[in-house]
Simulated assay, not measured.
Amino acid sequence: MMKILAHRGSSGTHPENTMPAFEEAYRAGADGIELDVQMTKDGALVIVHDAKVDRTSNGTGWVKDFTLDEIKELDFGGWFSEEFSGLRIPTLEEVLDWISGTSLELNIELKNGAVRHAGLEDGVVRLVRQYRMEERVILSSFNHYSLVDVHRNYSDVETAILFMEGLYEPWHYARSIGANGLHCYLPVAVPEFLQGAQQNGMPVRPFTVNKAAHIRRFKDAGCAGIFTDFPERAVKIRDESSVG
């Protein structure tokens, strides 16, 4: 069955990459959660997508220039709606502490591109192992050098390449760097690609899949999962189509 992975949590209805967004995805019946990890000035692993805090908080500046205490003072909910005012940024450890008590899977995107966070891979894997989540975690990144580092140092951890281009037979490339999955931008998930990946035993999980027609198409194509901002809607559509 195609798995429903909540993109930055239930980010269509809650402020992205916050505990309420993750908790809502769990309540909605998602199979897993996708989130983004960066590093603060003092080496803390925090859950935030953009390299700067400007869009999703009441602060300004680069994540890398804040200490954990400083970034914890910012409001990461008020930008979305007044209902969520005062939300603090979660750390990866806080999320792992919560999710380890559920059956949810976890996709951790290593945000190690525009800003290079030295030691990010090591820190993430160390925490994943501390919470014994190795069997439920996939590490993904647009920075494939990051994924190679993970594979070389922690070959037991599953990785997946993120990409937005119409690559030809990307399963060959993914295997060449030790990656186990293809996380592609929705428009490049053309039929030839989906069929070829399936024939070659490489799981595909497109992003970001919010429309009913796309959800049904990827289910019919045998995708391993989809990333969606609306997990409740996606779960309902997937389960209805499986009996309809």
Rank of each mutant, 00 (worst) to 15 (best):
G181S: 15
A197D: 00
G123H: 07
E73K: 15
E105C: 04
S241W: 15
E192G: 07
T159C: 14
S176M: 00
M19S: 01
G119S: 00
K111A: 04
T13W: 05
A174E: 00
G119N: 01
H49I: 04
L162D: 12
H7M: 11
L92T: 00
T67C: 09
K41P: 07
K41S: 12
L194R: 01
F66R: 01
V204G: 00
H151L: 11
I138C: 13
T60Q: 05
M164C: 09
P20S: 08
K211H: 13
L194G: 07
G178Q: 05
E105K: 09
T60G: 01
V243H: 12
K219L: 15
T56Y: 04
V63A: 00
G43V: 08
N58S: 05
Y26K: 06
N200Y: 01
G77D: 10
R116Y: 11
D122M: 07
E169H: 06
L182S: 05
S81H: 14
L120A: 03
P203N: 00
V125C: 08
V124M: 07
E82H: 09
N180E: 13
E93M: 03
M2T: 13
Q198F: 04
G43D: 07
S100I: 00
F76D: 06
K219R: 14
I237M: 03
T159D: 11
L194K: 05
E134V: 11
E240P: 03
G59I: 09
G225D: 10
H117D: 06
Y26E: 14
G101N: 13
R88F: 00
Q198G: 14
K72Q: 15
F80A: 06
R129H: 14
P203D: 00
F193L: 15
D220W: 10
R233A: 11
L74I: 09
L104A: 04
C184S: 02
L5K: 02
L194Y: 07
A179E: 09
V95T: 06
V235T: 08
L147Q: 05
M2N: 04
R238I: 12
G201W: 06
T60N: 03
M39F: 10
D156C: 06
T228R: 11
N143P: 11
V188W: 02
D220K: 15
I108L: 15
F66V: 02
V148W: 14
G113P: 01
L106T: 09
I177T: 08
S242C: 14
I4R: 01
F163W: 13
Q198W: 03
D122G: 12
L106Y: 05
R205D: 08
